[in-house]
């Protein structure tokens, strides 16, 4: 809140520092885009061009990547996994979040504590029992296994998030709806859910982002090349003996663009979420 930079010179200097910092932190993404869209001769050189030459823009690296690896198939797989994992997690989380927000019997308290545990359980640890469980259950190499693994990390996060959104809807509203003859379930579906639409949207975006980015479960539980997701495909492509950098950066762009779109939706919520969190605790 403090207006520390009151003089025009201070403001100018501050803006310069801010812009320079943004330039540095954006540079990796910028360089990925440059490598993916500029001719190889400009980039793979002793004196690489640091600025884009718009006239030389080409998508050759993308065609190269698609010709060498089934990136479109992997994109489709990523999409299926992300949508399925997020839908299941959201469904479970909405019901649990509402229950956690409105009641606090022993079962709710037990669930809330276990959800916290689930939130801190590292993927690099649970992947061991997951692999053993899915292997014994014959689920290895199936989308089902990967969706279940993603749900195990999605539900703790989403349920606690949804509880916070439900907490902002006054209880009196539920009671009024029930006085008017709504059942508990129609109260949730017709009265409360429409009021937490922004929360549902943020939560879905968050879940989609998480499962789209997920790597460890996908790399371990799926071995069939045709069932791979983008992140695993990207890593296998990068691990080849002679790396085709422009094609790799094109594939990285393919993975990142949906994320950037989702992030632009999510960013205001992230900022307000952090603020209200700090204010309430």
């Amino acid at each position: 809140m403090a207006a520390r930079t009151t003089s025009p010179w201070g403001t100018r200097l501050g803006f310069l520092a801010l812009a320079a910092t943004a330039l540095v932190t954006f540079f990796p993404i910028y360089w990925m885009l440059m490598t993916a869209t500029m001719p190889t001769s400009l980039i793979l050189a002793r004196q690489p061009a640091l600025l884009p030459h718009p006239g030389l823009f080409s998508l050759d690296a993308f065609w190269g990547a698609l010709a060498r690896k089934p990136f479109l198939l992997w994109t489709l797989n990523s999409l299926i996994i992300a949508v399925a994992s997020s839908a299941v997690s959201l469904f479970v989380a909405v019901l649990a979040g509402y229950s956690l927000s409105r009641w606090s019997f022993a079962s709710q308290r037990l669930l809330a504590a276990s959800l916290m545990l689930g939130k801190i359980l590292p993927a690099s640890l649970v992947i061991i029992p997951f692999f053993v469980m899915f292997s014994v259950g014959g689920l290895l190499d199936s989308y089902g296994a990967l969706v279940l693994a993603n749900v195990s990390t999605g539900v703790p996060l989403a349920a606690l998030l949804m509880k916070q959104f439900f907490d902002r809807v006054p209880r009196e509203l539920d009671e009024a709806a029930m006085l008017d003859g709504c059942s508990r379930l129609t109260t949730l579906g017709r009265v409360v859910l429409p009021l937490v639409k922004p929360g549902l949207a943020s939560c879905s975006v968050y879940l989609l982002l998480m499962s789209w980015s997920e790597f460890l479960f996908a790399r371990t539980l799926i071995s069939d090349v045709n069932k791979r997701v983008l992140t695993v495909g990207l890593q296998s492509f990068a691990g080849e003996y002679l790396v085709d950098w422009p094609a790799l950066m094109a594939a990285a762009t393919l993975t990142l663009v949906p994320i950037i779109v989702l992030f632009i939706f999510l960013e205001p919520f992230l900022v307000s979420g952090a603020t209200s969190g700090a204010l309430s605790k």
């Binding site: 990796p28 992140t231 993975t255 960013e267």
Partner: peptide, 21 residues
């Protein structure tokens, strides 16, 4: 602010291949 917060959303694998390059 959006630009500065963006790296948070970049998947670890994407970040790692970009930095390797």
């Amino acid at each position: 602010r959006t630009v500065l917060l963006l790296p948070w959303a970049v998947p670890g694998i994407v970040a790692s291949v970009i930095f390797s390059w």
